[in-house]
Structure formats: structure tokens, C-alpha cells
Nucleic acid binder design. Structure first.
Lengths: 161, 161
DNA sequence: ATAAGAGACGTTATTATATTACCCGTTCAT
DNA sequence: ATGAACGGGTAATATAATAACGTCTCTTAT
């Protein structure tokens, strides 16, 4: 495992995207879910951006590409499907969405958001989740869902500064 | 220290509110900040509710109490002031605000939000913050700001169920 | 005293984000 | 063939936040 998050490394991102799409196809097929053209396109757009993408950004692209102008529910429905099936995550502090790096298993990621390049990196650290569960248990609280969103400087931007 | 969060215990909440207001006054005086009537009233409203309060909820109350109808910037400005000076926190996942339990020192809380009673409890666990800083450091990311918002069942509601 | 500047807040309008309700066409199991 | 379930189009609306500008009231240097 390298020390630098993917988003900060130069790489052929189209590979990431097509890999993510293929994986999504496989998961949907396996689970009898319908990854329609629209849903797939939305997933592709989300993945194509390293920075979390707003629903209205997606809407704009969709509107541009086929002349007619898409309406919000079109995008939100697709996003709901993708969220429900763990193919994307929502970043509450940004009102935006990112592709899920590990859609093959249920989980809630933790997110590192660079304030300079705006890239979001998904982390999946049991130590963090556990610390939260333990801390909550200390006051008798049972955790069902965690939102962990961290702003700071990614390795690349820190180096550049 | 008890095992039950404050919000889940029966208590005279008006005491909490007046204590919070008095503390805010003291802090503002000490730091040469102006806790105007409006700001104080907004802080009071936020504190009076155990569940995070939306800006437009506050707006509604303000509009009701003096006949004229308050406009959004009135509330947002007051909230900005309170946020900047650590007197309230914003819960990103709810678009809502809660009074800060420990305004006397700078910090970023972690929040436990009960899905049944909607009360939000502030936690301040160094173990959680540290786990996040460590996890981020593992990929070369420098943490500047943490958002930790946890949904689940509080002690009271868990017992009731 | 007074003018200049800063801060707090009112007011209007606008932008950004998300949801509701209703409709239509396709698919697929009966 | 039929009708329920699902995907998605469309219009309208709800909710959250900000922009731009004006006014009043302080303070403070002159």
C-alpha cells in the first residue's frame, strides 16, 4: 500500500472509471438490480470527477448532452438508487456525491476532503469507527450510522505548498 | 460522570439555557465581542431545543414574536457570529444548529443524534479525533477540521424501545 | 463638536439544494 | 391480454443559504 491517496497520484483515471462501472454492473447483475442507462451515466459522471459532484452539476451535464433539459428528480432518483445500493456516497458537508471505492461490501466510509484541490478520498479505518462506537457507548448511545468528513490538505497539495 | 447523556435525563432545562447564556455573556465580555439582543435571543432559542434547530425554525419564532417578519440574513448573520465564536455548532447532516456545550475552549465536537427523539449530544473524545488524525496521516493527509455526526439510538430511547 | 469608518441589522431579491405529485410507457408475471 | 411494478418525464413547490444595498449607531481621531 502506498502512502499517497489515489486522487493525489498521477494516474489514468479513465481506468478507474471503467473499472468502477464494470464492478457496478457485476454487483447489480448479481443482486438482480437494474443499472439502467441513466443510472450508469450518473455513476460514470460521479466517478469521472475526483471532487465530489453536486446533483445540479450532474443535472447540468445531462441537460447539455441531450438537448432537452433534465429535471432534478431525474438525477435524484438515480442518485438514490446508487446510494441505496452502496455505489456512491453522499458528502453531507458538501451536498455532493462521490463514487464508492469499495462497493462490494456494505460499509460507511470516512472522507478526506482536500481544501486546495477539493479531491475526496475514501478511508475505511476500523480504528475510527471503533473509536466512535466506543465513545458513544460511553454515554449509552448505540451507533447505527456514522458521518465522518474531514477537511484538510492532501499529500499532493501539502507538497505543492 | 453519569452514564446517561444530559438530553436523555429529566432535568430543568431552563437552567441549562440560562447557564449557557450567562457563560456566553462572560466569554463575549472577556473577548470584547458584542452579544447583541438578537444574537443572544438566537442563542437562547438554539439552546432551548434539545434537537438541532434549523435556521428557518429560528426565523419562524423570531417572526412570530415581533409582528414583522424577519428575513433569512437576520438569522444567518447571528448564527455566523455564534459559530465563529464557538457558541454554537452546525450539524451538516441536518442543516441545523445546536448550542455548544463547552464554549470556553476551542474544539470541534462529535455529535450523537438520536433517530427517535432527535436530541443531539455533544461528545468530545480525543480518542476519536486522534484516530481520525492518525488514519488521515496514513495517506499523507493533514487534518484541519473534522465533522463527526453519528445517528443511532440514545440511552433513553433505547430503553423505551 | 464633528466627520470618517466600522459594525449591526433591515430589506429585497436571488441562488442552491431537494422533494412532491402526477403522468406515461415498458416489462413481466399471471 | 391484463394489470401491477418500475423507471423516468414534467411542473410545481419546499427548504436552505447568500448577495447586494441601505440605514442607523456607535466609536474615535481630529
Amino acid at each position: 500500500m502506498t502512502d499517497t491517496p489515489l486522487a493525489a497520484r498521477p494516474h489514468d483515471h479513465s481506468r478507474c472509471v471503467s473499472h468502477a462501472l464494470a464492478e457496478a454492473e457485476a454487483i447489480c447483475t448479481r443482486q438482480g438490480l437494474r443499472l439502467t442507462a441513466l443510472r450508469k451515466r450518473v455513476l460514470e459522471l460521479v466517478w469521472a470527477s475526483h471532487k465530489p459532484l453536486g446533483a445540479y452539476d450532474i443535472l447540468g451535464v445531462l441537460s447539455d448532452e441531450d438537448g432537452r433539459r433534465a429535471a432534478p428528480p431525474t438525477v435524484y432518483r438515480a442518485l438514490d438508487f446508487l446510494l441505496e445500493n452502496g455505489l456512491v456516497h453522499r458528502i453531507a458537508s458538501l451536498n455532493a456525491f462521490v463514487g464508492c471505492s469499495h462497493p462490494e461490501h456494505a460499509h460507511q466510509g470516512q472522507f478526506l476532503i482536500c481544501r486546495a484541490c477539493h479531491a475526496a478520498t475514501e478511508l475505511e479505518q476500523p480504528a475510527i469507527s471503533q473509536a466512535i462506537v466506543d465513545g458513544a457507548a460511553g454515554v449509552g448511545f448505540v451507533v447505527e450510522n456514522q458521518t465522518v468528513e474531514v477537511v484538510g490538505l492532501c499529500a499532493g497539495c501539502k507538497g505543492a505548498a
